[in-house]
Amino acid sequence: MHRIGIDLGGTKIEAIALDGDGRECMRKRVPTPQADYVATVATIVALVRDVEAELGVSASVGIGTPGAPSTRDGRMKNANSTCLIGQPLKLDLEAALDRPVRIQNDANCFAVSEATDGAAAGAHVVFGVIVGTGVGGGIVIDGRPLTGANAIGGEWGHNPLSGEDEPRPCYCGRLGCVETWLSGPGMAADHLKVTGQSLDARAIADAAAGGDAAAEATLQRYEARLARALATVINILDPDVIVLGGGLSQLSRLYEHVPRLWVPHIFSDTISTRLVPPMHGDSSGVRGAAWLWPLGETS
Rank of each mutant, 00 (worst) to 15 (best):
G245S: 06
R274T: 15
A217H: 05
P239E: 08
G196L: 04
L199S: 07
A215M: 00
A208V: 01
S183R: 00
G247A: 00
A188Q: 01
H257C: 13
T232R: 13
G184F: 02
V276D: 08
P264G: 07
A227K: 03
L226I: 07
V258G: 06
A205R: 10
L192Y: 09
I266V: 14
A189C: 01
R202L: 05
T195F: 01
A213N: 02
A229T: 00
L251R: 08
Q250M: 10
N235R: 04
A224P: 01
T270I: 11
A231C: 13
A188R: 03
A213I: 02
T218C: 12
Q250A: 15
I234C: 12
T270M: 12
R228N: 08
P264E: 06
L237S: 08
H191D: 04
A205T: 08
T218N: 10
D269M: 14
G246F: 01
D269G: 14
S252E: 12
Q250R: 09
Y255H: 03
E216P: 02
V194L: 15
V263P: 10
P185Y: 01
A189F: 01
I236W: 15
L219H: 09
A231T: 07
L254W: 11
V258I: 02
I236C: 15
T195K: 03
I234D: 10
L254I: 11
A224I: 01
V243D: 04
E216Y: 07
T273D: 06
T218Q: 06
L251N: 14
